[in-house]
Amino acid sequence: MLIRKKAHARAGLVGNPSDGYFGKTISFIIRNFGAEVTLFESPELTIEPNERDHSVFGSIEALARDVRQHGYYGGIRLLKASVKRFFEHCVKHNLPLHGRNFTLRYSSNIPPQVGMAGSSAIITACWRALIEFYQVEIPKHLLPSLVLSVENDELCIPAGLQDRVIQGYEGVVFMDFNRAHVEKLGYGIYEELDPALLPNVYVAYTTKLSEGTEVFHNDIRGRWNRGERDIVSAMYQWANLAQRVRDMLVAGRGHEIGPLLNENFDLRRRLYKISQGNIDMVEAARDCGASAKFTGSGGAIVGTYEDDSMFEKMKAALEPLSVAVIKPQVL
Rank of each mutant, 00 (worst) to 15 (best):
M1D: 13
H8E: 01
H8R: 02
A11W: 03
S18I: 02
S27N: 15
I30H: 03
A35E: 02
A35N: 01
E36Q: 14
P43A: 04
E44Y: 06
L45T: 15
I47M: 11
N50E: 10
S55Y: 01
V67Q: 14
V67D: 05
G74L: 09
S82K: 07
V83R: 11
V83Y: 15
R85A: 11
F87C: 01
H89L: 10
H93K: 11
L95R: 12
P96R: 08
L97R: 11
F102G: 12
T103R: 12
S107A: 15
S107R: 15
S108V: 03
N109E: 09
P111S: 08
Q113E: 12
V114F: 06
G115A: 05
G118C: 02
G118N: 05
S120Y: 04
A121E: 05
A121K: 05
A125D: 11
C126V: 09
V136E: 12
E137Y: 15
E137R: 15
P139H: 13
P139N: 10
P139W: 03
P144Y: 10
P144T: 08
V147C: 15
V150N: 07
E151Y: 11
L155V: 08
A159W: 00
Q162W: 04
G171E: 02
V173H: 08
F177N: 09
N178I: 01
H181Y: 09
L185C: 05
G186R: 08
Y187V: 06
E191V: 00
E192I: 13
P195S: 12
A196G: 13
L197Y: 09
Y205F: 15
L209Q: 15
T213W: 02
V215E: 14
F216R: 12
R221E: 04
R221Q: 12
W224K: 13
G227T: 04
G227A: 05
G227M: 05
D230N: 14
R244G: 00
R244H: 10
R244D: 06
L249T: 04
L249E: 03
G254M: 03
G254L: 04
H255L: 00
I257P: 07
F265S: 01
I274W: 05
V282P: 00
E283H: 13
A284S: 14
A285R: 01
G296Q: 05
G298E: 07
I301F: 07
V302Q: 03
Y305V: 07
E306P: 00
D307G: 05
D308R: 14
F311Q: 09
K315Y: 00
A316E: 13
L318C: 09
V325G: 07
I326W: 11
